[in-house]
């Protein structure tokens, strides 16, 4: 379609007169569309995680299972730190500091993996030789909800790590410039979004409600 401008922000558009009317869109316009699309996707996903939170409050109410608080605090901190390193990576890309970007991206990926394995080992008990977790998905509503929530979140963590890796690889091939690095920005805000989700999941899983000690396991 033809070039576009929103009437709400028509004034801000004055500078981009060059080929704003050609049938092809400019990078700035495409960037706006991409950003809007990404945020709409976030809104949509918010309902996905919202549904899980709703299920948690519906089923557990004012109770919670006895999860290991130290593990909870550590994985939460790790994810928070990864958000910080992702911020550094994103800002570095903006300023063309590609070495900083590369290091920060790797730190983020590693912290993401640490978070992932933390959950897998200590909450899911996937490796009983290291740690014996007491929750299973099928014994009670507590296990079921913990696995549903952390599972859906872990799925997003994995895709986030994959995205960051792809962006690191593209940056290595010099595909981005300080002016044009939407891919980096997208993977960064995606990663922060995964963090935002955990910000709500952490109190919902670990802090809210009084502990119910499960019997017979």
């Amino acid at each position: 379609m033809a070039a576009s401008t929103t009437p709400m922000k028509a004034a801000g558009h004055a500078g981009a007169h060059d080929d704003a009317h050609a049938p092809t869109e400019t990078y700035a316009e495409r960037l706006r569309l991409n950003r809007l699309g990404m945020w709409l996707f976030f809104i949509s996903e918010a309902f996905l995680f919202g549904a899980l939170l709703a299920a948690r409050f519906y089923l557990w109410g004012d109770t919670r299972p006895d999860l290991d608080q130290v593990v909870g605090l550590i994985v939460t901190s790790v994810l928070l730190l990864s958000s910080a390193s992702m911020y550094i990576a994103d800002t570095a890309a903006e300023h063309g500091q590609w070495r900083v970007f590369s290091v920060a991206a790797w730190i983020t990926m590693i912290l993401g993996l640490v978070f992932l394995f933390g959950v897998m080992i200590f909450e899911w008990g996937l490796f009983p030789s290291i740690y014996k977790a007491h929750l299973t998905p099928w014994d009670s509503k507590y296990g079921a909800v913990v696995f549903a929530m952390t599972g859906m979140h872990a799925f997003h963590v994995i895709t986030g790590i994959a995205l960051i890796f792809i962006m690191w690889n593209l940056a290595r091939k010099r595909r981005f410039t300080p002016e044009r690095h939407w891919g980096v920005e997208a993977s960064a805000i995606y990663w922060h979004y995964v963090d935002v989700v955990w910000i709500f999941f952490y109190p919902a899983l670990y802090l809210i409600g009084s502990v119910v000690h499960l019997t017979g396991h």
Partner: peptide
Amino acid sequence: KAGLVIWFFMHVKRLWAAEGGH
């Protein structure tokens, strides 16, 4: 906390920026 992340890390206000500013 989520608000801080969305505002400072995710740069939500760039949505309203007409230019591709960073």
